[in-house]
Amino acid sequence: MTSKELLKVNNLKVYYRSPAGKVKAVDGVSFTLGENEVLGIVGESGCGKSTLATAILKLIRPPCYVEDGEVIFNGKNLLKLEGEDLRRIRWKELSYIPQGSMNSLNPVMKIGDQIVDAMMAHTEISKEEAKEKARKLLESVGLPSETINMYPHELSGGMKQRVIIAIATALEPKLIVADEFTTALDVLVQRKVIEFLEERRASIGASMINITHDIAVQAVLVHKLAVMYAGKIVELSDVYTIFEEPLHPYTKGLIMATPVLGEKKVIKGIPGNPPNLLNPPPGCRFYPRCTIAEDKCKHKSPPLMKVEEDRYVACWKYGGE
């Protein structure tokens, strides 16, 4: 399945300057994303996935900075864009649903006004057109038209999240980056919101990067899955393959640690803790917790290697020098 390449991240390194030294939050991440494709980035707290998201969108602030790497979006290196050029891309081609975004709605503005404002700020559109569009947008995520005149506090969590989806997709961007967009929602609402988001995304043909620690949500939503650990991608492949035959011991561990309703499986955790990213060990970062580790793993960190077409692992067990 070859689709036109939309986004290419090359060896991205994003560090934090701290009094104790450099924290290597994202340490050499590379991947590609095609058009109309959904990539999931899964990992636990501290693995760097949120930092990765903000870096791609050029939203990082000091003490966080990009040490190396490039983010090529539609042929342009996003990291090198400034001011007006960047603004033109934001919202229209790239949009972001940050963590806890439902709480970022302006509490003293009506929903309708917020959508209209956003649209008018980024496009040449008249107020009437914007209003009409807002109405249609809300409809597309299953919200009644009364919502336009309501205030955020009158809406439930699920409704607010759908408003966010509406705003983020208002200008029909080519890429949506969503960070834990269903985490605070109840199970029933979560399912509805996922359905709406997927429907909306598919209807505008956008690609999406879905970031969450919940591998179950990833399983139902994405086409490709990247597993992140301690600032690096340790496995990247299409979602069916990863679940059916996980290669990296961490991926295996994650899957084994998740209970599945209806299956009487025993769940096991991964002993130990993720490494300190201030001074990561020279070898594989998963080494201390790995059950199949060898001596080589202690000294050399495996790069993300291609195992098959569209299948990558960062583990010495699968070859490489």
């Binding site: 199970v187 029933l188 979560q190 399912r191 996922i194 359905e195 919940d214 591998i215 179950a216 949500v217 990833q218 399983a219 139902v220 979602v239 069916y240 679940f243 059916e244 899957i255 998740t258 599945v260 309703l261």
Partner: peptide
């Protein structure tokens, strides 16, 4: 509504 960590059992 519970998502299952198995893409073969998608909704």
């Amino acid at each position: 509504s519970i998502p299952i960590p198995d893409p073969k059992r998608k909704w």
